[in-house]
Design a protein around this nucleic acid. Structure first.
Lengths: 174, 174
DNA sequence: ACTATACGAGTTAGGCGCGAGTTGTATAGT
DNA sequence: ACTATACAACTCGCGCCTAACTCGTATAGT
């Protein structure tokens, strides 16, 4: 399962990195948060940059997986699936302490390289597939941009969800 | 008219501030760019912070005025008016050297105070008025968020305009 | 498959003095 | 309604140094 020791370390690392930023977060901080020794941390990740990359990848994989499973749930109408997918994808990084995660990601480009850029493409493809039809690309692109815009001035995750609902109804509902 | 000496100084100041940022732009830089002496600059603006505030206000006033005149042009259909208004409002700060202006504004909050926050409200009110109807507030809010989102990953002003056109068509055309 | 301890190498934070640059003002002149 | 020049006060970056911290690894032990 995903609940092995390595996963637990990655979850702890995400909290620590999000709280202190990459530079000020020490391997010792992460080790303490994960309840292992600092040398023990190196059994899982051979360096701090590698730990950081794995942490970000783990987080993004989680968001993508959540979005995918929501979008694939054919019991729900398209409207609900889209709202849920955007909530998992972008809403995860809105408000409170979670806001720092997004900053963390696009604030360390030299460490992450082209890796984070793959995920928006993946998400976009999922949304296009879910919408279907000729103008699916246009609708998906517009909705994604709207989500980014809303993310910038929404205070809470609930507000993000509400406004995203309005956008979905406006752009691809009635 | 608006083409007096003071206006010329404000235009020069905007370029200088946008190019160097508030801190690294000196009053001497602005004076040279405006072709007046540095002491002469103090005849118009009694301090650097005041010059900065006046510069930002001048720029935002210009954008609002442009958006207002476009939205008021009843010869054009709503679709064209909306696209034009967003192009003037947000498109002005997209791509090339102009991208720095937006950063400049929300990167010096202690100098500007609550002043810049008034303009988005004003612009929103203009858009709501142009759209009209019951759900005008929802539509305007969504379109504005979409514009902000597009602004974040559009490379050129043309791309911004094109993608904003798509969004407007999704709302009020087909 | 780890912990506890230790260690070298490298990076970084903090303090400090100094020269340079900048702000705002003054003054004399046109 | 300005320019040219000058000036005091202040801030800011710079280099330099030292102390502290952090990374990655090694070693011995369970």
């Amino acid at each position: 399962m995903g609940s092995d020791r390595r996963t637990q370390v990655l979850d702890s690392a995400l909290e620590v990195f999000a709280r202190y930023g990459y530079r000020k977060a020490s391997m010792d901080d992460v080790a303490k948060a994960a309840d292992i020794s600092r040398p023990g941390l190196y059994f899982y990740f051979s360096s701090k940059p590698e730990l950081f990359r794995a942490t970000v990848r783990h987080s993004l994989d989680g968001s993508i997986a959540a979005a995918r499973s929501v979008l694939a749930d054919s019991r729900q109408p398209l409207r609900e699936r889209l709202i849920g997918a955007f909530d998992h994808w972008a809403g995860r990084y809105v408000g409170a302490m979670a806001a720092e995660i997004g900053v963390l990601i696009d604030s360390n480009p030299e460490l992450l390289g082209a890796m984070p850029a793959e995920y928006p493409k993946l998400f976009r493809a999922l949304v296009i597939e879910a919408i279907g039809g000729r103008s699916a690309g246009d609708v998906a692109g517009t909705l994604i941009s709207t989500a980014i815009g809303i993310k910038h001035d929404a205070e809470t995750r609930d507000e993000f969800r509400e406004r995203m609902t309005v956008a979905v109804d406006l752009y691809c509902g009635r």
